[in-house]
Design a protein around this nucleic acid. Sequence first.
DNA 1: GAACGGACACACATTACTTCA
DNA 2: CCTGAAGTAATGTGTGTCCGT
Length: 278
Amino acid sequence: MGFGDASSSPGLHLVLGLAPTGSPSKAEQHNSRPAKSSCSFTPTSSCEPSLTLALSAETNYPQVPKKVKVNKGCEDPLDFSRQTSPHSAVSSFSGGRVKRERDLSGEEVEAAERVSSRGSDEDEDGTNARKKLRLTKEQSALLEESFKQNSTLNTKQKQALARELNLRPRQVEVWFQNRRARTKLKQTEVDFELLKKCCETLTDENRRLQKEVQELKALKVAQPLYMAMPAATLTMCPSCERLGGVAGDGASNDKTAFSMAPKPHHFYTHFPNPSAAC
DNA sequence: GAACGGACACACATTACTTCA
DNA sequence: CCTGAAGTAATGTGTGTCCGT
């Protein structure tokens, strides 16, 4: 479903399209986000003469792993914040700042956080605002390593990682979410720079071609007879042995308009255009 | 089988804390 | 010490999917 515009600039191909991502099975869809149409730029080895713009959900990111739902309903017993509704505003380090909507499990949550989370030992009086955990180098390294292998975690992986890092599963989950967001942002910046360079290249090319057109027009005014034109700027059809736009084209009565090809498709397909755009 | 609601996971935007120049 | 910027943990919200009723 890509749409290109190769004709507007011969030799320059701008292709925008949706990369086929394949439709995941239902099992795959579960626990993995539907492929949103994230705009992704597929860089070519060089910006010219071919530029490809591709809309892809997975161009630069690791494919969302196919996760298998395990023991639904009690799948994350350690993830206390998940045991409540995602909208229930259970806040780690909340210290009374964020109200819980379900106070039923509030005490359990807090108790669990105290034992499992580094940093929650401060705030004994419950007076201060949410505190921010700083992960240790070891924790960050392990999380990074895990992220490299897989940018998403299933429940078991999350729990295992949380145990290993002495963090709550929710913290691991948040870390991965933020990490994915950062990755995407970084990639967006990279894509932006590439597109900017390509845009500049195309602008230059366009400028150069415009100049060439102007020169050819000026040449035509100065030397109306095609015979006087430089050979390099003329194209001859080997089959009909006509020079483009000049000989025997009764339809082209326009004296000012310069037509290189009475049968443009013919010339376009068969003759290497001397233009630098080729 | 369709409709509905709860649970869950995720993306995304935002907030707020920490660190550092 | 103060301050602004950058990095990032945490929170809030919206949405899609699965599953039980």
